[in-house]
Amino acid sequence: MSEALLSVDGLQKHFPVTKGLLKRQVGAVKAVDGISFEVRKGETLGVVGESGCGKTTTGRLITRLIEPTGGKIVFEGRDISHMSQGKLRPLRRDVQMIFQDPYSSLNPRHTVGAIVGAPFRIQGVQTEHGVKRAVQDILALVGLNPEHYNRYPHEFSGGQRQRIGIARTLALKPKLIVADEPVSALDVSIQAQVVNLLEDLQNELDLTYVVIAHDLSVVRHISDRVAVMYLGKIVELADQKDLYKSPMHPYTNALLSAVPIPDVKGRQGRERIRLQGDVPSPLNPPPACRFHTRCWKAQEICKQVEPPLVELATGHEVACHFPENAPAKGDAPAEAGATA
């Protein structure tokens, strides 16, 4: 097993809710509430969940665009959880972000050359044949015409703009790329192009990805391991194959069965799990297991004791009192012990 590039322990982010003239704090949105995971070198970790589950906040925390309320973020052995902006600067070379919306994440008044060249200027990086040449090489790498160096973002289509955004993240040869919904704003045929590009770049440049998305099929395609989030917690974390073949958490099961399948044959036969209602507000999440209000397996214990995230099979962590597809008791810890 390769070593961890990034590890996160008990990470929390609470956004204060204030009221009145004196901005008295009356509560907190617990966007991320105690999550732990690690990202290994060269892998792709997928993070899925519905809106409000904290996946985007997680992405912004590990890139340190925002400061955590609690917990630890360790990147390459250094604790960066509360590092100052000045000290973070060299780190920004190593950790980059791809944004969801290729329309609002590119400055419309800057040329492509200026946008992709900005990281060099900001970081004061000297390139062998000048910045222009370096930028053109990167543009070619992501499948754009290097001649378009002097064009503006509005001259490109959505898919091409997303490629510009990717080119910008690649400029300084980062070690970790956090992609927040990298394809959800794109048309289906373009989504596939960008997914393939991300995979090619990973193979060529030995990149590590954290891909945040709500689309379960895209995440399965691109990820090695997948974390499922619900209301600020990770409820299940496993290898992509295990998670999709034998999901253990009821929420993961419900999510998977809710995805519409583009096939007319299976439409009657498929067994469905239908969750009732919406995701509760993260301002006032249910106590103990946060999923108990919508869970069909919930019992008294789920309302009183929060289930910890434990490893039930090798590399398969679940936070549930009544997991499905769980191996018989006894063999799981032995296996886990053997690999450790």
């Binding site: 898919g159 373009i190 596939a192 997914v195 099929s217 395609h221 998977l256 399948i261």
Partner: peptide, 18 residues
């Protein structure tokens, strides 16, 4: 489209251009 009802394919087969 990546699909959940089938074994994952190695690569998606996109349409070129836009």
């Amino acid at each position: 489209m990546p699909r959940l009802d089938r074994e994952p394919t190695e690569r998606l087969l996109p349409i070129k251009g836009s």
